[in-house]
Nucleic acid binder design. Structure first.
Lengths: 291, 291
DNA sequence: GACTATACCTGACTGTAGTCAGATATAATT
DNA sequence: AATTATATCTGACTACAGTCAGGTATAGTC
């Protein structure tokens, strides 16, 4: 009936209308959209002007003018960055903080309306939005170091363990340690915990911990279903291997389960080879890779 | 980690960027966006100016000017509507048709890039887009009369029959007649076939056919899963009852299966009551309603 | 046939986004 | 110390979207 292209066009029309309506509602506060957008990105603690300009992709001249208008209104104050006095930092005044909160409230209300309208389809709607945002923001997915006790890390681990439970037959739920009992091992200088974030949302992780002298173990490689098929697991692994090399390891090992076919295929493609068993159930595949 | 609101905001950012990129690519043809948008809505066969203006929510002055600019470029011709000489109809010239095709190609390319980037997640991406568009366009869902052999009707019926197969235990696939063997019965003046469309996409149907003198039968009520929970089934039924009344029927009947709990709950809420069996398997529920 | 409503057009105007060239201050490099 | 690069600012400019009041032709109504 509708071709793929038509379906995409229909989606575009729908969200254009929705986003347009939100933008229009921001105008209710008597300020042009550009200024409103800038104001929403300024924090009470202070935000780099360059960062805001970057995020909104604004010309430096325009940015300067918008900021000046907000200053004239008494909503923000700017000062030089002490670390580099060419750079400027914008900070909300109390009035500005109130105005900022007002914009937040508008957005909040619009979001709530959308979710309320969806009713019992709300969770499905949000899941669909996550999938689309993850796909569209694919190119800005960033991989960062995190602490193994970080909330984002716990989210990834919980999803990872759930995946294991769903995939490996006969795995008892109580065998999964959360939060990680061995968290310190994943911290510098002996280990690492990498998280992939797509505009804030954690969508993947991979970690490294010491095993024997000169040998580290790769643990808990996970990628959100929405983000699969785009080479994120490979990116995580490449980065993890680099990190292991930097930490002075000469050798990597990992254990896995044969039910996790996708992961094992990836390991083989990246040059991992089977090795002797060094752990027990639920592991039934053991691999290694010299660095 | 991210609240519902944050997830919605993230989605907004992602699609704003995407739509913005598409808009920007339209500028490549050296025409302002407004004119480009209007041109894309003009067809070779002729399109009502009022309709375009309505769809783009343009001021009549602005619309007039944009159209004049396109005329000056030799892309469109306008003439009076013979039925109402106050109204104007815009038609593409050969040059205009070529230009229109160029815009289509740009959009097509952008859509294909998005789908290609999604790779094996493409179908999931499109399904997510359909869900979101259906939710956001909820308020513009329209119900129209259709022919039972219309492609959109066949799509609805195929989905309906698939639903039956998935829901009713022991139903053999070959028992489902498609296209409808009794199609003529669903046409005026004895029957009706209603389709719900959300910006072109068929998302629901309901139909009526004669059963006995003065009695019509309601058949094949279906609503797409994306559109459930928003009262669309009720809207379809209300409209169907009105239509039955207009066609001179005094009484309605229907048969269903007890596995279709949602539908049966709706029928009861709308005043239908159980009646004597008048068909066989797969039906095991029979209801009627006086008009 | 007069009146009112409608569809569209024209001209005059406004506010905003966005661009560009050049100026100024600070930082980094040689 | 001189040079080059970077971050921001200022002023001048353009184009585009959008609004409004008033005008003309046609259609519908009493």
């Amino acid at each position: 009936m509708l071709s793929d292209i038509d379906r995409l066009r229909r989606f575009n029309r729908a969200v254009t209308r929705e986003v347009g309506a939100l933008d229009h509602s921001y105008l209710g506060r008597g300020r042009p959209l550009g200024a409103a957008r800038v104001l929403q990105l300024v924090t009470a603690g202070g935000t780099d002007v360059a960062r805001i300009r970057d995020q909104l992709a604004l010309d430096s001249g325009l940015m300067s003018r918008l900021l000046r208008a907000l200053e004239d209104e008494g909503l923000v104050e700017t000062g030089a960055d002490p670390a580099d006095r060419r750079r400027r930092i914008a900070r909300l005044t109390p009035t500005g903080a109130a105005e900022n909160a007002a914009y937040r409230a508008i957005g909040h209300l619009a979001a709530e309306t959308t979710l309320a309208r969806a009713g019992r389809q709300g969770p499905a709607l949000l899941a669909a939005m996550d999938l689309i945002a993850t796909q569209l923001l694919h190119d800005v997915t960033e991989i960062v170091d995190a602490d193994p006790d970080d909330p984002a890390a716990l989210i990834c681990l919980a999803a990872y363990f759930q995946l294991l439970l769903d995939t490996i037959p006969g795995l008892p739920a109580e065998k999964l340690p959360l939060p990680l009992a061995d968290a310190p091992l994943y911290r510098l200088p002996q280990g690492a915990f990498l998280i992939a974030r797509s505009d804030g949302l954690p969508i993947g992780c991979a970690s490294l911990r010491p095993l024997e002298p000169g040998v580290a173990e790769v643990k808990r490689l996970w990628v959100h279903p929405d983000a699969r098929g785009q080479g994120l697991a490979r990116r995580l692994m490449v980065l993890l291997e680099t990190r292991a090399r930097e930490l002075g390891y000469q050798h990597l090992k990992l254990d896995s389960n044969s039910a996790l076919t996708e992961a094992i295929t990836l390991y083989r493609r990246m040059g991992w080879i089977d090795c002797a068993a060094y752990t027990g159930f639920p592991a039934d595949v053991w691999m290694e890779k010299p660095l």
